[in-house]
């Protein structure tokens, strides 16, 4: 069974249908990129996968024993308020919370895991810095370290390159490649279709309904893909 299966999914906001007739599967180790124009239902799908939006019809089901606690999330950066007092260490450690039971004190394993990912992402020297004073690229590394600290099976990434300059964008894609090579399953929503194609194993193209779902090679040769990529 696949890690994630969506069957005939229908999603709505205030009873207005945004996305319908969507079926797709994600296997372990896949990197699925969800592409489409603004308002095509990409972010809505992301919310539903995160369990933040109830499905209006159809089903989302997890396989291979995947539970919601094993899903981590890299949000867009615009959601954070200015001047929030939080150190890098505090933010990264909070990623461990989904692994915690009723009591949420951090133990040595939590701290070591957080430290390991901070080191991996090159932000260990920033651990006492304020999250809000970091650059966009550094903040993204912190949020990625938070997500990876929960040692997730499935990583959901929402528009990762929004607000990043070209250098940071390049850095991010290098990181993404590394994450995928670690065997993590990734679902990424992006408007950057050209970049998506380089890293994705599969593409889901939405326009309020699925226009295409399949491997990235198949997408490049499909009518939708060719039109969208301007070939």
């Amino acid at each position: 069974m696949a890690l994630l299966t969506c069957e005939n999914l229908c999603l709505a906001y205030d009873k207005k249908v945004v996305l319908s007739g969507l079926s797709f599967t994600v296997e372990r180790g896949n990197c699925l990129c969800v592409v489409g124009e603004n308002g095509s239902g990409k972010s809505t799908l992301m919310k539903a996968l995160l369990g933040l939006l109830p499905v209006a019809g159809g089903t989302i089901s997890f396989g291979e024993g995947l539970s919601r606690k094993e899903i981590a999330y890299l949000p867009q950066q615009s959601v954070f308020q200015e001047n929030f007092p939080a150190s890098v260490r505090e933010v990264v450690l909070s990623g461990r919370l989904s692994r915690k039971g009723f009591l949420s004190f951090y133990n040595r394993e939590d701290r070591q895991t957080a430290e390991r990912y901070m080191e991996k992402l090159g932000i260990l020297s920033l651990e006492d810095s304020s999250f809000q004073t970091l650059s966009g690229g550094q903040r993204q590394r912190v949020l990625l370290a938070r997500a990876l600290s929960s040692e997730p099976e499935l990583l959901l990434i929402d528009e990762p390159t929004t607000g990043l300059d070209p250098v940071m964008t390049g850095d991010f894609y290098d990181l993404l490649e590394e994450i995928v090579s670690l065997g993590k399953t990734v679902i990424m929503v992006t408007h950057d279709t050209a970049a998506a194609l380089r890293y994705a194993t599969h593409i889901l193209h939405l326009h309020n309904r699925p226009l295409f779902f399949g491997s990235s090679e198949a997408y490049q040769n499909s009518a939708v893909g060719r039109k969208y990529l301007g070939k």
Partner: peptide
């Protein structure tokens, strides 16, 4: 004190906490 870490999480990023099954 018991919920300190979760109080931080719910204050800093409610969505992330919810997404992780919190």
């Amino acid at each position: 004190v018991l919920f300190y870490n979760r109080i931080f999480a719910v204050t800093f990023d409610e969505t992330y906490l919810a997404a992780g099954g919190g």
